[in-house]
Design a protein around this nucleic acid. Structure first.
Length: 521
RNA sequence: GGCGGCAUAGCUCAGUUGGUUAGAGCGCACGACUCAUAAUCGUGAGGUCCCGGGAUCGAGUCCCGGUGCCGCUACCA
């Protein structure tokens, strides 16, 4: 903190990097949107945020797909990455960097951390052996194979013949890190979340760790191992390192690195919790780097309770949803409907329910009915409130408490909990509005009517500010009709301004409905 | 197989360290109101809290058994 200006507290968060070997689906969108909401929340709360996302472009599958399509791996990923960048754009993802693991600085970072782990004595050259399918170019675990009548072993997965194969491979001494990892988990119970997922990780580690094969020689689409070009790094070694690359590693003295590392939270899916909660901290410990503060594991989305799959044709493309329901509606639905960390389910009816009930009716209509009265009865300016009644004080206090509640909720990525509480207050406000009946006061007690309208607008102002991370566009429109500037950077839209009440006399634009109701075609 | 989790109103779920009539939202029914995007407010419908035992003055909430579903059980994103 300097004397002239308060230094902002850094906040560094990441999504997982996506493997661009197919089209983005709603599950990808879910992670991007959640992380984006987290990033926006922290920015509005005065943090110096760095938000990283990107693509994981190495590995055998990319190489295979490229060959199939007659492209080089680089040509393939160059083509596919645009699809994902378009998705980020369509979803309003406010990332600070979109990293690609084929970026030049990422090769440098990956090789640097490799050398650090090697210097620490944690990398050695050995032999990887197992049942290998030449056709699949992949190894299979014992339980994935079966011995058939012809005396040969086959993959149960792909039905291909397997041969016992030995391959030269570098290994990482993961076995040395079991105790250190368990110590980490015990000293930092918030390191992994939600607890049930974290417990699975812990039990895995406590079950014993074997050394990890961290290089491949069967294909070359990857980051070359320093000093041995026959090997490329195991994709996860380079993939995880992206979190370091983006903050300037290996230049640990750089401003970015000193400011942003260690990361505050990695937001990932439950399929890759082990890589982030076991291998990643082990790599970092080996390289002598600080560990991320938290790995937040979200669940998967099902279509009406049924797993998404191409063959069932129930995979939703994010762009289709945005076109059908609207971006803010999709963002709201995903974060409000599903407790973050649990699996969730989506359906057309569920989205429409949230859209109409929560957004159009409870929030949109509250804004419209109160602002319309102001426009018609208060000459379109924020009215002057009189002395607050107990009912006024109660509802204002409930709204004021939302900031602290949301801060606590976002601290543990409980987006659902934040929104639930906000909508509870909106429910109370609708009840307050009906109970106070300003349309009656208009004829009997105009000053009291003005007070009720003022109080209602105050709640709407606070809610609008708090809902910006989830629904940037709609919240902006609400704040505009509440006379709170026109830009997200306006001081009146920051969380710090929540305690600054509306100024009577502020001219308000003519109100117009902000949340359309979904009408079946 | 081993370890772990979950089974509560039509639907999605809350239910503190066990304690009077088991809660919320949505949906539904009826009523009210008319400022508002036919929105909103109020009321209600009466769920074996999966099944069977057990300890307890008392359990949805603890113990045992059973059934069903799900997750994890190593390097193929």
């Amino acid at each position: 903190m300097t004397s002239s200006e308060t230094a902002k507290t850094p906040y560094y968060l990441t999504t997982a990097i996506t493997y661009p070997n197919g089209d983005p689906h709603i599950g990808h969108a879910y992670e991007y949107i959640a992380t984006d909401a987290m990033a926006r929340f922290k920015r509005l709360d005065g943090f110096d945020v760095k938000f990283l996302t990107g693509t994981d472009e190495h590995g055998m599958k990319i190489a295979q797909t490229a060959e199939k399509e007659g492209l080089t791996p680089k040509e393939l990923v160059d083509r596919n990455v645009t699809i994902f960048k378009d998705t980020h754009k369509a979803l309003g993802i406010s990332y600070d960097r979109f990293i690609r693991t084929t970026d030049a600085d990422h090769y440098e970072a990956s090789q640097a951390i490799w050398k650090k782990m090697e210097e620490a004595g944690d990398i050695y050259l050995g032999k990887y052996e197992g049942w290998y399918s030449v056709r699949d170019e992949a190894y299979y675990g014992e339980d994935e194979t079966e011995l058939r009548e012809d005396g040969k072993r086959y993959s149960k997965v792909t039905d291909t013949e397997l041969t016992w194969t030995e391959e030269e491979s570098y290994f990482f001494r993961l076995s040395n890190y079991q105790d250190k990892l368990v110590a980490l988990y015990e000293s930092q119970p918030e390191f992994g979340a939600p607890r049930t997922r974290f417990n699975e990780v812990i039990s895995f580690v406590k079950g014993g760790l074997e050394d990890l094969s961290v290089s491949r020689t069967t294909f070359d689409w990857g980051v070359p191992v320093p000093g041995n070009d026959k090997h490329v790094m195991y994709v996860w070694v380079d993939a995880l390192t992206n979190y370091l690359t983006a903050v300037g590693y290996p230049d640990v003295d750089s401003e970015a690195f000193k400011k942003y590392w260690p990361a505050d939270v990695h937001i990932i899916g439950k399929d890759i919790s082990r890589f982030h909660a076991v291998y990643w901290p082990a790599f970092l410990l080996s390289a002598g780097l600080e560990l991320p503060k938290r790995v937040m594991i979200h669940g998967f989305l099902n279509n009406n309770g049924v797993k998404m799959s191409k063959s069932l044709g129930n995979v939703v493309a994010p762009a289709d949803w945005v076109a059908q329901y609207g971006l803010d509606q999709v963002r709201f639905f995903l974060l409000r409907e599903v407790p973050f960390g649990a699996d969730g389910s989506y359906s057309h009816d569920a989205v429409v329910g949230r859209m109409n009930s929560d957004l159009a009716n409870n929030l949109g209509n509250l804004a419209q009915r109160s602002l319309s009265m102001v426009a018609k009865n208060c000459e379109g300016v924020v009215p002057v409130p009189g002395t607050f009644s107990e009912a006024d004080e109660t509802i204002l206090a409930a709204a004021m408490e939302l900031l602290e509640h949301s801060r606590a909720a976002y601290q543990v990525q409980d987006f659902h909990g934040s929104l639930e509480k906000i909508w509870h207050v909106l429910g109370d406000t609708n009840a307050y509005f009906a109970d106070q009946a300003p349309w009656v006061l208009r004829k009997t007690d105009v000053p009291r009517m003005e007070t009720v309208l003022y109080v209602t607008l105050e709640v709407l102002r606070i809610v609008s500010i708090l809902v910006q991370p989830v629904m940037p566009d709609a919240a902006a429109k609400l704040l505009t009709v509440l006379g709170q500037g026109s830009s997200v950077d306006d001081v009146r839209r920051q969380f710090a301004a929540i305690g600054t009440p509306l100024i009577a006399g502020t001219v308000l634009p003519a109100p117009a409905p902000i949340f359309p109701k979904y009408e079946e075609p």
